[in-house]
Design a protein around this nucleic acid. Structure first.
Lengths: 198, 198
DNA sequence: ACCATATACGGAACAATGTTCCGCTTATCA
DNA sequence: TGATAAGCGGAACATTGTTCCGTATATGGT
């Protein structure tokens, strides 16, 4: 499902030839592998670590990601997609309030994980310029959907703005160092509690 | 003059033997060279570029800066020192208001230049943990001195806090992309104008 | 002035990582 | 099913990081 979204660069569809399926497979495998490697070794992880885990050659790597920023941006988009795509699935399988809470936690995790990328993001690399817009375009509708559903069910306040919540939870999820590892989860819970209608 | 300040790590003074002067020279040469190289090639510049410009061997480099963060922190401290040390000199050679304006511009330049370091600073490297405190400890007194002098001369408002001004000018000096290159200088001028007494 | 010695230096050698290049493979289309 | 453009792999090469150790010298004591 998430592969429907433009994790890939270049949204054009009027090509002489369509992109070969093996190319797409390599691309996806690299993004997936990079995601894992970044998580365990940081964004400066060696190229060979990534190609090794992805099971592709280094040549293939550079074909898809000539600049390192290209890879980081692709991983970021991919994770934004995962997070956004979680919303409809949660809505289907859980009551409104529960789905909303679950998604906020999911989103909170995403933010916390992205601490490593965050510094890279602010580095001025042109590959990252469109990311904030993408972030907003994908995540806001996802949250809005859950908010509306919960609001219609009368379970939360109706004066809530998706933008505010997204940035509020983002801030809550970026504490420097926390004594207890579940601190973030707890404050997000409290915040979530505040959303409820009385 | 600036070498009086603890650009060097390790504030202890009860050593068996004092640090050799050639060691200090190498240290200073490396910081100086790194400063230049960082400015032209960024903080990821190759070690050999720095040692080459400093005229020392690579062994010497690693003796002084086992971790890259150590070097970056040293350069940062060095630049904070330069900026702070500029204050007394300006006070001696210029009328109060003029000295204050000149120093604010000097400080503004410093902030703008540090954009490259800023992302590194937020990376969580333990070598950077004491930098914010150092920044404050050196820069606030420098500015306070100029503020007090100008206030005594009746040239500026008396309700001004050094902290506020430091952070305000820092924010003014970090615009993303400016059409005109002197934008920063101009807004700082305007801000400075606001400091004057009526 | 000179010696003893801890300190520091330089840079070759080694290791890790980035990047390119090109012969081989394969998906796609007619 | 053949032609061909697209893609792939990984060795080879280039760059940068890091260590190691023989040599040089600043320092304190005599």
């Amino acid at each position: 499902m998430s592969s429907e979204h433009p994790t890939e660069p270049d949204g054009s569809d009027t090509k002489d030839r369509a992109r070969r399926t093996d190319a797409k497979r390599s691309f996806d495998a690299l993004v997936q592998a990079a995601r894992d490697v970044f998580a365990s070794s940081g964004v400066d992880a060696p190229v060979r670590d990534i190609t090794g885990k992805a099971g592709v050659g280094t040549g293939t790597f550079y074909r898809h990601f000539p600049k390192r920023g290209d890879l980081i941006a692709a991983v970021f988009r991919n994770e934004v997609d995962s997070c956004a795509d979680a919303a409809p699935a949660l809505a289907e399988n859980h009551p409104p309030l529960e789905a909303l809470a679950a998604w906020l936690h999911r989103y909170s995790e995403f933010i916390a994980t992205k601490r490593g990328l965050a510094s890279a993001l602010h580095s001025g690399d042109p590959a990252f310029e469109t990311l904030p817009a993408y972030f907003d375009a994908r995540l806001r509708p996802a949250l809005s959907q859950l908010l509306e559903r919960a609001a219609k069910a009368g379970e939360i306040r109706t004066d809530l703005d998706a933008d505010d919540i997204i940035s509020a939870v983002a801030n809550l999820s970026m504490p420097a160092k926390t004594a207890r590892p579940d601190h973030t989860r707890r404050v997000v819970d409290i915040f979530m509690n505040g959303l409820k209608s009385r």
